[in-house]
Design a binder for these strands. Sequence first.
DNA 1: CGCGCTCCCTGGCCGC
DNA 2: TGCGGCCAGGGAGCGC
Length: 276
Amino acid sequence: MPELPEVESIKIGLQKHVVNKKITKVFCSDKKLRFNSEIDLNNLKNLEIESVERQARYLVFSLNKNYNLIIHLGMSGKIVFVDAAKTKNYHTQKHDHFICKFEDGSSLIYNDPRRFGFIDLISADKLAQHKMLVKLGVEPLNNDFNAANLKKKLRGKKMNIKTAMMDNKIVVGVGNIYINESLFESAISPLRSASSLTDSEIKKLTLAIKNILKKAIVHGGSSINDYVDANGSSGSFQDTFKVYGKNNKKCLHCNEIITKIVQNGRSTFYCKNCQK
DNA sequence: CGCGCTCCCTGGCCGC
DNA sequence: TGCGGCCAGGGAGCGC
């Protein structure tokens, strides 16, 4: 479920709940996630969480004794914080792959049916060079994601603009939903080659991405609170989608029927009339 | 090197 | 009710 706005909201939820907590017990399922942790996760026992940050779609926990824990949710991962009272009666569910219990009796549960995510405990001095982090491009909400820098990245790129913007080396965290929505907002066809965008289109696209991600963080925030606190029921943010999943529905701007195609193996939704 | 395709995995949904 | 096929919000790795 997570794109950047969800991971950002989960991070905020985790900051409220797990910072300064000491881990007293660790459970790992026998199922392998995308890859196994470099350091045995049982080493988390007796460590204390000092901070939680987000890089791209990765959650990065800092722990004492110079450890970092990286969690990625893949396509289907969920993180649920369970308070002490509920932890007492908690029964491990299918696809719970990692649970850590804290000194105060509460716990954190990672559940991932498809297991495209991972959990990696590493020493802090290796964080910047981690294989999943080292090649990442700019954060879309940072100032260095701007028209001038994006123009350089798109120069000479023959691939379509939609696929290009989902490339983490160009900009991180822009997933299939938000690139579809952003291209609609900036009136750019997903079929255009990346290098064909004019300066003004590049500017519109960067602003649309920032705008939509920011709105989603605010809008998704409330549903994400449930997500972190309780059972992860689906939120209401999908109500704001204008093209994603709207194939065969009418475009809100012009009444044209929204088209669905496949690009690079992922579904694309757009309005042929509005997006040129 | 850039780019397109395939795969990792489970579950939900749809049509028969 | 059962089953096969298709689809899913991510990302790496492989050939060409």
